[in-house]
Design a protein around this nucleic acid. Structure first.
Length: 772
RNA sequence: GGGCCGGUAGUCUAGCUGGUUAGGAUACCGCCUCGACACGGCGGUGAUCGUGAGUUCGAAUCUCACUCGGCCCA
């Protein structure tokens, strides 16, 4: 009997052919029906080469969600988008062309950004396609397209009209390198070394002094009060006294406040505008008048006197020098300080009062908490990230950014009276470059307008992805069918941004939650468990790896190595070793391809046994697939296929399948069981390794794609796992025995078969060439 | 300071509703062409399950303390 499959190994080159077939047959096309399964796919951001291997693993798994849902009989809508707004491409463009954004013509700068994005995007799309992502590539969208930005602006206009947006001058997180305000969500904390300076402040009308410790001595110019803890007895006698601030010689009051920590520094703290968020809160609480000492250019302002024009770091050095000259420094300690840093530009932020637009979010927190409770998180533990974040929200969301490559804020201002004009929704506006749609100011009738130059925080765009893909405001019928989405897959580091903002925005705009399930994945780390980054040089480029090994090997690695929700390590050698399993599957199939596929057969004890184990496997896989945890089926399938089916069952029935020494009925029982088992394995594996399973399926079982099949359901056969142990142990015993006697595996041997294995006697005898 | 998660052989990991000779993968070593597969088969080395205490007849598994690592929030 000749096998239908002649090649001895799975050739990843075949993936290209299969990909083409899928494309031609349009097997993943989406036509909305009454019930749909919408995936709110994360649009990846093309920020540079190479694309992150962890992201490639992530998208592979998102595709497994889609395929699992399809095989469960769901009508899957799997949109593909590319996120193209925001700071990273601006920084990339500035570096690439050695230019400064603010010194470049805006239109020209935008074009350079667009070109950079196009290049990077092309490679990402290529990788996604090669990975076998079964998304809707024909209609892939971009968040910087006219349609997308129209929606972003329309939702802004809608919320403006509802009174959810306001303009306010407030101390804000300011990233002076990017020259823009950023939201709390865009701040990360880093432990950075700094100096804690103990300064001497004179107490007025006495010759006494108190010690103030600060990491920001340059802010003495903006010091408005000194606080100590009310329980701190060291300072009781000074409460209410005037203190002379060195350098400026301004008098400030010493008062008590519970936020002063007795253990930190000297226990007395200077409150300046603004060293940190606590200062902001204190200025507000105590009604202090702020002094702006750091300007938008990131340098000291005139208010800093002789230090004006210096960068804060330079001013700090200078001030410390000056204080030392005057004997006003008691000591300086080197400490590690948890410093707020801009997530994008990685520099410590300053807190500077600026006028920005805000979207109300504080009053939505309780509602969002409730929505969060209604959403199923996979894994459950990551819901906590959202809840912790909600607990810490205490200001509204500043949404305006002083950058170019983003969705423009659609507002014009009357040149005469400054009255803002917000246009009608449904159109894409670029106020910095376009005439105001009305000719006269609604308030003063003046005819001259100035367009707003700022753009939105990119999360204003990303946070409406479920609305965009469901054609909100554009096609109501479509919207009603596909919204809310079924699931939001995403990485865990953007729970407080993307996930939270999406909940907020969708709730504000539709009153409904955007999805019923959230699926949260961990980070991809390097082989030592360190974060991968281009600067560290430990980034792995996924593209050559996928081209060399094939998508299925990569995907199987992703499924079998990544326990859902936890961080995972990426190691090329490990990825490569997964090829072995595909090879095993290929050769099992190659063997089976020599036997005809038959509909039924008389089952022997061995057949019934392996089918009961197969049913256990189906149950186990279902458990994993039900919660979109592919680790469970991947491990279980590999274990069953390799260590049970191939190692034991196939060896046991080989002779029977060939019909040597067995009746036709017995032979057919084996052949039937072999094919039933393999076809089940293929279907179970199809969401994880779509290529090889498709190829084998079509050769062996059907012209119709495996990805059009329904997933196998458990038959609830009574388990025989006790027997499994007996069988595998007996086989091991025989193999060991032959080995110790230096016999070849085909040589005959005399070994007693245990009583419990009596029903399997004939198969075992032929397998091991046992003699009585 | 608070929260979440984790610490099982060189590496990754399963087991954690208490009783397993602690399972698998990978790496390593040895032997082997047996009518699918050397990207294979068989066998082997390798884990006092982070540390300490408690509960229990019995703990990797439950409780507490400590410790280390990662992340998040003050």
């Amino acid at each position: 009997m000749e096998p239908k499959i002649s090649e001895k190994v799975w050739n990843p080159e075949l993936e290209k052919k299969i990909l083409k077939q899928w494309e031609e047959e349009k097997i993943y096309d989406f036509v909305p029906q009454e019930d749909n399964f919408t995936i709110d796919t994360p649009p990846p951001y093309p920020s540079g080469r190479p694309w992150h291997i962890g992201a490639a693993a992530h998208y592979s798994q998102i595709d497994m969600i889609a395929r699992t849902a399809r095989m469960a009989g769901k009508n899957v809508y799997f949109p593909i988008g590319i996120d193209r707004n925001g700071l990273p491409v601006e920084l990339y463009t500035e570096k690439k062309h050695k230019i400064r954004m603010r010194e470049t013509d805006r239109e020209e700068f935008l074009n350079l950004c667009r070109n950079a994005l196009d290049d990077l995007e092309a490679e990402m799309i290529l990788i996604m396609k090669n990975l076998g992502i079964s998304g809707d590539f024909a209609n892939y969208y971009r968040t910087d397209s006219e349609e997308y930005r129209t929606l972003t602006q329309s939702t802004f206009i809608d919320l403006w009209k509802k009174g959810q947006i306001y303009l306010a001058n407030r101390p804000n997180n300011y990233d002076w390198v990017s020259g823009t305000t950023i939201a709390d969500a865009e701040i990360i904390y880093e432990d950075l070394p700094t100096k804690l300076v103990y300064m001497k402040f004179k107490i007025k009308d006495t010759d006494q002094e108190i010690i103030i410790a600060s990491t920001r001595p340059e802010l003495v110019c903006a010091c408005k009060t000194i606080i100590v803890n009310p329980k701190d007895e060291r300072y009781t006698q000074y409460i209410g006294k005037k203190i002379i601030v060195p350098i400026t010689n301004v008098e400030v009051e010493l008062r008590t406040h519970h936020s002063a920590q007795q253990e930190f520094g000297s226990g007395a703290v200077m409150v300046c505008s603004y060293g940190d968020q606590n200062d902001v809160a204190l200025f507000r609480e105590l009604g202090l008048e702020e002094i702006v000492v750091i300007g938008l250019d990131g340098r000291m302002t005139k208010a800093a006197g002789e230090y004006a024009g210096l960068k804060p770091k330079q001013a700090r050095t200078k001030i410390i020098e000056d204080l030392e000259i005057n004997g006003l420094v008691e000591k300086i300690e080197d400490i590690i300080h948890r410093t707020p840093v801009s997530e994008r530009s990685k520099i410590p932020i300053e807190i500077i009062p600026m006028e920005e637009y805000y979207l109300k979010q504080k009053e939505s927190v309780e509602k969002i908490k409730k929505l969060g409770q209604e959403i199923t998180f996979h894994p459950t533990m990551h819901k906590q990230i959202l809840m912790n974040w909600l607990e810490s929200i205490n200001i509204d969301w500043p949404i305006s950014r002083r950058r170019y490559y983003g969705t423009e804020i659609p507002i014009w201002y009357c040149k005469n009276c400054s009255e803002p004009y917000v246009p009608e929704p449904g159109k894409y506006y670029r106020p910095w470059n376009e005439k105001c749609p009305i000719s006269n100011c609604t308030k003063c009738n003046s005819t001259e307008f100035v367009g707003e130059e700022r753009t939105f925080d990119t999360w204003m765009d990303s946070s409406i992805s479920p609305l965009f893909v469901s054609k909100f405001n554009v096609d109501n019928e479509f919207f009603n069918k596909v919204y809310p989405a079924a699931i939001r897959p995403q990485a865990k580091d953007i729970v407080r941004t993307w996930l939270y903002y999406t909940l907020l925005r969708c709730e504000q705009l539709t009153g409904k939650k955007p999805w019923s399930e959230a699926w949260i994945m961990g980070y991809g780390l390097d082989e030592k468990g360190m974060k991968m980054s281009k600067s560290k040089g430990n980034a792995i480029d996924p593209l050559p790896l996928i081209e060399k090994l094939g998508a299925d090997t990569f995907r199987f690695w992703s499924a079998s190595e990544i326990n859902h929700g936890y961080d995972f390590r990426c190691n090329e050698q490990k990825i490569e070793s997964n090829k072995k399993f595909l090879s095993k599957l290929w050769n099992v199939s190659r063997f089976l391809s020599s036997f005809p596929v038959i509909e039924s057969g008389t089952l022997t004890a061995s057949d019934k046994w392996v089918l009961s184990e197969l049913d256990n496997l189906v149950k186990e896989c279902k458990k994993g697939y039900d919660e979109y945890n592919f680790f469970i089926p991947a491990i279980a399938i590999r274990e069953f296929t390799w260590n049970l089916f191939a190692a034991h069952y196939i060896e046991m029935v080989k002779a029977r399948a060939y019909g040597i020494g067995f009746s036709d009925e017995e032979r057919d029982g084996a052949i039937f069981t072999l094919h039933k088992t393999l076809s089940t394995i293929l279907k179970l594996l199809a969401p994880i390794t779509p290529f090889i399973t498709e190829h084998l399926w079509k050769i062996l079982y059907s012209k119709e794609s495996i990805h059009k099949q329904k997933q196998v359901e458990p038959e609830n056969i009574e388990t025989q796992s006790d027997i499994t142990k007996e069988i595998t142990e007996f086989n091991s015993k025989v193999w060991n025995e032959k080995k110790s006697q230096s016999l070849s595996l085909k040589d005959s041997i005399k070994i007693e078969i245990p009583k419990i294995l009596e029903p399997f006697k004939k198969d075992l005898k032929s397998m091991h060439n046992l003699v009585d």
